[in-house]
Nucleic acid binder design. Structure first.
Lengths: 128, 128
DNA sequence: TCAATATTAGTAACTATTATCAGTATAATT
DNA sequence: AATTATACTGATAATAGTTACTAATATTGA
């Protein structure tokens, strides 16, 4: 039931996400995909971003800046939000899986996952 | 400049936050403080919550569920959001300060802070 | 008591996101 | 190729969370 049909808009959104490391918001995706599909609607972008996240083809990043960010790289990795330019950057760092064990130590429930966001200054803003 | 004046509403909000471990949203604070000040406005709650966070007297927790949560306990500690009942619980666990070092290892910028949120099942929901 | 001004209640405005729906695109079937 | 069924789209309305505005009120220091 609910068979999935191809849509060029969805493909374009997926392609856009795969092709950027900027961790765009829905609106940034909208602006980007409009280059190819000027008539695409913002609702379509939201609908497909949600779809891709559900399918595990994209990640939703909650950065606390008022809007969700999206990442086409679904490999587990961590992010930094620059306090200066407010960009979201990938961090190349070791896995933090062990913190789930630390969290579970004195806890009566179950730890299934974690989300980590670092704050600081990106290499460019550090210079200033 | 901009001297701060006492306000009973602000005190009530602060008292409410201090007296709960429920990590309430602005609206939950509003409902709670209305018991004491039935005429308090939601805008006043938001204004004062922002003020308290700025002053370091409360923490804002971005949990990705659509609204911000607030915590009157400003001692560094970590949280779990239960995937079942969607409550936010305190975790008693070791500090994770060392992950800043891990993040900084291969990074050209500066790591100043991190926010960590765990997901799983609280002790009560685990039983079901 | 009085003046100066920070704060409030009430409401309007704003932003991000979701819902609705008639028309269109896709895909399977004839 | 034509037909049918239905998933998807664009456009727009609706919703939710939060902030901005303003006249009236509360606080504070003189």
């Amino acid at each position: 039931m609910a068979a999935v049909k191809y849509s060029r808009q969805r493909e374009s959104i997926k392609r856009y996400l795969m092709g950027t490391k900027a961790h765009p918001t829905a609106d940034m995706v909208y602006q980007g995909v409009r280059e190819e599909y000027p008539n695409i609607s913002l609702g379509t972008v939201y609908r497909n971003l949600n779809f891709l996240v559900e399918q595990g083809e994209a990640l939703r990043l909650t950065c606390g800046d008022g809007s969700e960010h999206y990442d086409g790289n679904v490999e587990p990795h961590y992010h930094l939000m620059c306090r200066c330019c407010h960009r979201v950057l990938d961090l190349e760092m070791a896995s933090l899986e062990h913190i789930n064990t630390l969290a579970a130590a004195n806890f009566g429930g179950t730890i299934e996952a974690h989300s980590v966001l670092f704050f600081g200054r990106c290499p460019e803003c550090k210079e200033v």
